[in-house]
């Protein structure tokens, strides 16, 4: 069944004789745009790589229906930088500047789907920065989350939460 095309990442690696090791990989976005990338890029995308491995490199055209042609170039750009060892704070700052909230979320889903750990970590930080110091309602709106608490539950929850401190624990400052 579909699910059995499993995501057992890293369970196989390309052997040197693998015919795919030199061929270009075609990534097809959800809106049917083909992006040709080097096999090294595909390696960064564990989901893609495991698919290539599973088919012994015979299939080099990979459909990525969940990723649009708008978002895929960002992912590829990040992977290229990653391979070149050029993921710096400066690059990441520039990279994130280009992205609006929608794009950050789409890229986060793409990074998760493709299983690119570095990108996922980076975007987790970006999203955290964007929802930090915001209201609960803002966070719900940001992700499109429906509040599934009843008002009573939420009130109870807030009462309970009032017992937790949020500030940094003052280590040795005298208050007692």
């Amino acid at each position: 069944m579909a699910e059995e095309v499993s995501s057992q990442m890293n369970s196989l690696s390309i052997s040197e004789t693998n015919p795919s090791s030199s061929a270009t990989i075609s990534l097809v976005s959800g809106d049917d745009i083909v992006f040709k990338v080097e096999p090294t890029i595909a390696k960064e995308m564990e989901t893609v790589q495991s698919f290539i491995d599973e088919t012994d490199g015979k299939i080099t055209t990979i459909p990525l229906p969940n990723i649009s042609s708008h978002d895929l170039p960002y992912v590829i750009e990040y992977c290229e930088k990653s391979i070149a060892g050029k993921i710096t704070k400066e690059f990441e700052a520039e990279f994130v500047k280009k992205l609006n909230n929608e794009e950050v979320k789409e890229l986060f889903l793409a990074a998760n789907y493709l299983n690119i750990k570095k990108l996922l970590d980076f975007l987790s930080q970006v999203i955290a920065d964007r929802i930090a110091n915001k209201s609960v309602e803002y966070v719900r709106r940001y992700f499109g989350i429906e509040n599934d608490f009843t008002p009573e539950e939420e009130a109870k929850l807030r009462e309970e939460l009032a017992w937790t401190f949020t500030g940094v624990d003052p280590d040795d400052e005298d208050e007692n």
Binding site: F108, N112, L120, D121, S124, Q125, I127, A128, D129, I131, A132, N133, K134, S135, V136, V139, R140, F143, I145, E146, N147, D148, F149, E154, L157, R158, L161, T164, F165, T166, G167, V168
Partner: peptide, 22 residues
């Protein structure tokens, strides 16, 4: 992944986020 986002937030923001949904 959700926990991955939360880990970058401080206690105050985590508190907020816990009220977002079940």
């Amino acid at each position: 992944c959700l926990a991955g986002i939360l880990q970058f937030l401080d206690a105050g923001d985590r508190k907020n986020c816990s009220v977002v949904s079940r």
